[in-house]
Design a protein around this nucleic acid. Sequence first.
DNA 1: CGACACATGTAACACGTTACATGATTTG
DNA 2: CAAATCATGTAACGTGTTACATGTGTCG
Lengths: 171, 171
Amino acid sequence: MREAMLALLAKEPAHGYELRQRLAAALGPVGEVLNSGQVYVTLSRLERAGLVRGVQVAQSAAPDKKVYEVTAEGREAVAAWLLDSSWPKVAPVEFHLKLVAAAGTGLADPVALIDAQRRELMRQLREVQRLAESQPAEDDGLLLLEGSALRLQADIRWLEACETRWTGRTR
Amino acid sequence: MREAMLALLAKEPAHGYELRQRLAAALGPVGEVLNSGQVYVTLSRLERAGLVRGVQVAQSAAPDKKVYEVTAEGREAVAAWLLDSSWPKVAPVEFHLKLVAAAGTGLADPVALIDAQRRELMRQLREVQRLAESQPAEDDGLLLLEGSALRLQADIRWLEACETRWTGRTR
DNA sequence: CGACACATGTAACACGTTACATGATTTG
DNA sequence: CAAATCATGTAACGTGTTACATGTGTCG
């Protein structure tokens, strides 16, 4: 969030509301989660960090708005972010721990968990594919939906592997 | 972390250090990131929330240890966690925003970013596969490594899709 | 004696989430 | 006039990260 907002401001200064819209546009259907409060919180934190500068702009026929622009330091931070090719750890740790916990505590049946989870992922996959169809083909959001779909498919295949491993050894 | 620790305690009470080891054992090579301080922080937060109860145990030939056990409320929380089949949003949002930002600001070339990212993911994939080979076949950690590998492969395929989309339209 | 495993914590900070709070303008 | 959209924020909270701080027991 932080770096992404900074990067959008590096392209062009904006006020909070506008920034939120640009972010939503860049993300497409995936970006509908965005919380409005978070934008302003993040902007003030960025300002405190000296990466952006906010300028109050009076408007005659509307309430005032506050336009933010990146500082030189902020621009450096964006460049550094772009060059950083680290990738967040992607192991499905949480679900794996659920399986271990289910088997260990007897509070649930691991295989039942796997089945329920697969149903949920299939549902999500269908949802993503539905959104992809109703999306303009040249849109950036489409690419992101494709990324979601590929990951969901990978996770579903992983659940298959889990099932063969956990079937038969339910204690 | 929070729920996972709680679930492990539901299986069997433990003190912080031991819990950390059990967590590491359940995760295998993936779990090597675990921060020791976090365990104690989380335990005290769980206690404050009334989900676990800590009992000081004096040891003759060693420093005291503090054993935690789940409360009834804690056990309910574990059961609820196991039944919850929500799945964290999996879209590769951050990298997508980097591409948009790179193209928008001119601070980097999108296609170069994709290439660098793919090299990094291939490196991670090789690393995961190397770890999988040196892992006992019946180990739980192996399954988790497989999950990582599948996701990494999905991400690499997504990067291919990104490349065909972004090639040629570098402004 | 030194290194390593055992064992426990705290303080400060960063980030995201939720919920609350406020008000103007436009449009049906 | 009511509802949607424009527009901005704050307060409290939960969680994770980093870094620091402090020992004891054992084994080579």
